[in-house]
């Protein structure tokens, strides 16, 4: 399908994409997740041979994109909804693309119908709202009836109705057995659509794993403790061989893999006052933010946000590294 190997892109001194290697699996929706500025768009541009990599390669069906004859019949992409000539009608924008890849004219009408733009087909596309431009971009991606579809942050800036439409469209396309590669900076969006996850931060691969594994690893529960005798409590837990993480922002302790009952009893045995003893469930968004905490360019300084916490050893499961290793071993 599509394989990236050691893909690297530098803009002056900025390394936007840093030795990225992964494979897009056929027939599933792969979510390409990373905070803003992580290098998602740059990676996608290199996949379409729009930007030249500083080093590394992208292969589509084993070939360079440039060597595909009639590429729209293999890969359809929506990178930027506004990447059309605004002075040209929606129909003509699609027609010239179709002709370049010898796609029959009637397919233009079909895709316009599919995205619901038939009524405005003869209108100049510069008057289109973002939602309509997005639909036009999707129509252009679907023109060649391609097996692989790529969407760069397709729901950005859309109203709820537009978001829902895109989500359903992607589900429908996936159900037809197409390969979908879609980027987002929101974990919650990915959780709804993706079967597989590729996570990057500062251009580097952080994780490459099935969505189910990510959820399983991250929907783990932990117990939050708060006590006026925190230091003593910590010592006790250490003595008992229990791993503790302090969260300075909230003044709490977080404990994995030990039940609230056990912890409560332990505290009672040593007569430690507890102000809080509560079982918690980490959200996927939190897990993602922790994962990329070291790599976001500008931290959001909201108190208590996971991104502000130092990455905790217990929380950095062997995602990227171990998973890639197992996969390689299995190949």
């Amino acid at each position: 399908m599509i394989e990236l190997e050691g893909l690297t892109k530098r803009f002056g001194t900025t390394t936007a994409v840093d030795h990225l290697s992964f494979r897009i699996r056929p027939g599933v929706v792969t979510g390409f997740l990373g905070p803003n500025g992580a290098g998602k768009s740059t990676t996608m541009r290199m996949m379409l041979d729009l930007d030249n990599p500083t080093s590394g390669t992208v292969r589509v069906y084993g070939k360079h994109y440039r060597d595909l004859s009639e590429p729209l019949k293999h890969v359809g992409a929506l990178l930027d909804a506004k990447a059309m000539h605004g002075g040209r009608s929606a129909y003509n924008n699609l027609l010239c693309l179709a002709q370049s890849n010898r796609i029959p004219r009637q397919r233009v009408d079909e895709v316009l119908d599919l995205v619901g733009l038939t009524a405005v087909a003869k209108k100049k596309s510069k008057g289109f709202s973002l939602g309509m431009s997005q639909r036009l971009g999707i129509a252009s991606a679907l023109l060649g009836d391609p097996e692989i579809l790529m969407f760069d942050e397709p729901v950005n800036g859309l109203d709820p109705e537009g978001i829902l439409w895109i989500r359903n469209l992607m589900k429908g396309l996936a159900a037809e057995g197409r390969t979908i590669f879609v980027s987002s900076h929101l974990m919650s969006e990915m959780a709804l659509t993706a079967d597989h996850l590729v996570v990057i931060g500062q251009g580097k691969l952080l994780a490459d794993l099935p969505m189910a594994d990510f959820i399983q690893q991250n929907s783990r529960s932990y117990v939050r403790l708060r006590s006026p005798q925190q230091e003593r409590l910590k010592d006790l837990l250490h003595e008992a061989g229990i791993n503790v993480v302090s969260v300075p922002a909230t003044g709490t302790l977080e404990i994995d893999g030990v039940s609230a009952e056990q912890l409560g009893e332990l505290a009672a045995r040593h007569q430690i006052v507890l102000h809080e003893l509560s079982p918690q469930r980490a959200s996927l968004e939190e897990a993602f933010m922790r994962m990329t905490a070291d790599s976001v360019e500008y931290h959001a300084h909201a108190p208590g946000m996971a991104a502000d916490n130092p990455a905790r050893p217990a929380d950095v499961p062997a995602w990227g590294a171990a998973h890639t290793a197992t996969r390689k071993a299995g190949e």
Binding site: R45, L48, D49, L50, Y65, R66, L68, P71, L72, V75, A77, L79, D80, K82, A83, M84, H85, G86, G87, N93, L97, S100, N101, S140
Partner: peptide
């Protein structure tokens, strides 16, 4: 130049990468 000013260039080159 309108290929560049409109952003169409990326769509065009994705269709005709040579």
């Amino acid at each position: 130049s309108t290929e560049y000013s409109t952003g169409m260039i990326r769509t065009s080159l994705a269709a005709v990468p040579r």
